[in-house]
Every structure is written in structure tokens, then in C-alpha cells.
Write a protein that binds this DNA or RNA. Sequence first.
DNA 1: ATTCCCAGTCAACACCTGTTCACAAAAATA
DNA 2: TATTTTTGTGAACAGGTGTTGACTGGGAAT
Lengths: 216, 216
Amino acid sequence: MSKDTASKSRRPKRGQTREALMEAALDLVIKKGPFSSLSLREVTKKAGVVPTAFYRHFPDMSALGLTLLDESFRSLRQMMRQVRQEELPTERMIRGSMEIYFNYVRDNRAHFLFVAKELYGGTPTMRSAIRREIRLFTSELAMDMARFPFLNQINAEDLQMMAALVVNNVTALTQEMLELEEEDLTGQRDVLITAEKQLRLIYFGVGMWRSNKASR
Amino acid sequence: MSKDTASKSRRPKRGQTREALMEAALDLVIKKGPFSSLSLREVTKKAGVVPTAFYRHFPDMSALGLTLLDESFRSLRQMMRQVRQEELPTERMIRGSMEIYFNYVRDNRAHFLFVAKELYGGTPTMRSAIRREIRLFTSELAMDMARFPFLNQINAEDLQMMAALVVNNVTALTQEMLELEEEDLTGQRDVLITAEKQLRLIYFGVGMWRSNKASR
DNA sequence: ATTCCCAGTCAACACCTGTTCACAAAAATA
DNA sequence: TATTTTTGTGAACAGGTGTTGACTGGGAAT
């Protein structure tokens, strides 16, 4: 794991320690529990530095947490953009988006686990930061939906409601995915299939909703 | 008086201490954070007993947690039965069920907060216990749906998928409800309205799903 | 009336926690 | 090369943690 540690006195970790701390925290979240249950000392120990070195990079643990959160969402937003700009016919779009998304979840397991455990169990600061981010995704999805000619007669509030329905479900399925073992490929496939079905069902419902509203 | 012998040292709390411990833990979860972050000592302090008294009632903290979990779900199951046996026409059923449910959430805030924070952040034992319970609700809902003549052509797997869609969403909305202040009545109403709309949309989708499958 | 056990207390333990301080090595800058 | 800034170290602190053991009051059972 650790590379050349021949000289144990001073190693020129030029700014690497910061990343080592973040990585250590993420690792510990995977196998120990929520971030809030980690101690400064065990993080530094895992990172291979002395406790006091922590303060050279973060004022306290909660700062580390927020940095981790930022890192998680930065790349997530990037992937979302990628999903969004994939222009596909509606039928393929659902399946395609879900595939990209869940592949991303698989490849970034640690970050998602970190966020998942903080969503309801974290400090108020963390929770509201995550919720804000999710609300942002929801709004963006609603805006995307508004561009569909299929949906152009639905008011903004209902669009928001529909987007929330989608986001809530994908979130729940993500948690379900994270509970699975990494090797459980069939389980992962099942979640993907369920996701696709559920979204298609919602899609059907939206269609009916439109005609229902229009006929009033 | 060097040492008071009978003033407050010995009180005959016949088995009340156990409940005091559970209540104290629940209170602390509300204002401090997830159960896993509570210490045995602060729970006993809040309960008004000395730390060692804890062991007269529970072998360790995780046992307290499981007891709390059991208590939470015992009454929840009871309420669910009540909701289920309310026989109403479909249109009213959605609204009626959601009203009963969210009123129950409001009246049992502490228990729901406890469960919510443990769902993803708790120990593996707790998480799987909660997930099992949720899966149970989902299956029961699927069975209820199967009795609808409206849905009798849909196979079991798809019914499960639909029930999961409903449960996932209600779960998410519950968390949203719990984030609101207790006095925020308009916010709570909004969540209720959203819930009703979302479930109705799903209901529409299910209708389309049926005809879609039937036409194949 | 005596015994027994339940359920509380107190003292003590070994350990882990966050944070401070002074110090020194390495890296950056001059 | 000389100086300054950055970054990691070690010792020490005050306080919180779970858990042990011996002790004792009071109610229930004998």
C-alpha cells in the first residue's frame, strides 16, 4: 500500500498529506460507519501521520467533511451534465441514463456511501448542503422536462413534483444499490431493471396526468 | 448531614428506569444526532441514573438500539393495519391514507427520526433490520394491490416493483417531513399535497402499464 | 422474621478523544 | 547561499469513554 517509506523521519509529502487524509476518511467511512463517528486521531493514523499534522490542512473534522462533500458533488454534477446532453429518443433515454448513472455509482462507491450516510445522519450543516444539492438536481430535471413538447402544458409546480418523484426514487434505488456487495452483479442488474421499469411507469403516469389536466 | 441516606439516593423506580433510559436515548437522538453517536454515559445522565445502572437493563448500547427499533416498528405496524382496513373508494383512499400516515408521523416524531437516522447510518444489524421491515411493508402493499380487480392482470414481480415505487416515495417524503420544524404547518401541508399528487400520478401510470402490457 | 435478589450507588481502571505548544526538517523564496 | 514559510513531529494536557468490582437499600418470597 504505502510506497517508499525508507526514511521515517521526514518525507517530502508535498501537499499529499491532505489527500491522504481525505482518502483515509473515505476508506474509514466504508468500513467503519458514518463520517460523524470517525475520530480525528483514527483518520490521521490511517493516513500515516501524527494527529497534530491534521491541523496543517483542516481546522477541524467538520471542515474535512465539507471538503469531501464538495468533492463528491463536483464530479457528480459533471456526470449529470454528461447524462443530460446525451440526446436520445425517449424510450432509450430512460435506459441509457440509468445505465450511465448506476455505472457511475459503482465506480464511485466510496463517495456515494459517504453522502448516503450523511444525508440523514450528518450534522445539520451537512444535511442541508446535501439537500440543497438534491433540490438543484430536481430543478434541473424539471427544466429539462419543460423543454419536452410532450410536457409543455404542465405548470411549473407539477413539473417540480414529477421531477421530485423521479429523483426520490433514483435516490432510494441508489441506496439499495450501495447495500449490495460489489460482486453481486445480478443484484445490481435487478436494481437497474427495476429502476427502468419504475421510471417508465412514471413516464406513463405523466402522460395520463397531462391529458387529465388538459381535459378539465 | 454528612450523607443523606434516604432523600434521593434510593428510589423504588420499579422498572421505570428502563423506560427512562429508552426515553432519554430518544430525546438525545432528536437534539444530538444519530443513535450511534450517543454514549452510554450521556444516556444514563439524561435518565438520571449512574452509568453502571445501565447494565441492569441492557447488556450494551446496541441492545438498547434494537429495543428502540422494535418499539418503533411495533406501533407502526399497528397503524399500518389501521390504514389498510379503511375501505374507501380509490380516489379518497390515497388522500385518506396519506393523511392518517403523516399524522402518525407527526405524533411519533422521535421514533421516526430515530429510524431515519439509522436507516443508512446505523450498524449493519440495525440497517438490515429496518430494511427487512420496509420490505415487509412493500410486500403487504403489493398483496393489497393484487386484490384490486383493476390490477389483477399484472404479474407479481411488477406488482412488487410498483409497491416499491410507492414505499420509496413515501419514505423520502417522510424524511422531508421530518426536516421541517414542528410549527411549520404550511410546509407540512405542502408535503402532504405533494404526496397525494405523486401517488395519483403513480396510480395513473399503473393504469397505463396494465393496458400497455395487456396489448402485447 | 429471615432470607434472597433485584436495582441502584461509588470508586477505579485503562483507554481514547481533541487540542496546545515548542521544535525541527524540508521546501520555497530571496 | 541565506532566509522565511510551510509542514510534520513528540510530549503533554484535561476530559470523556466503556466496563469491572465490591457494596447496599428495599421489596418480595420464604
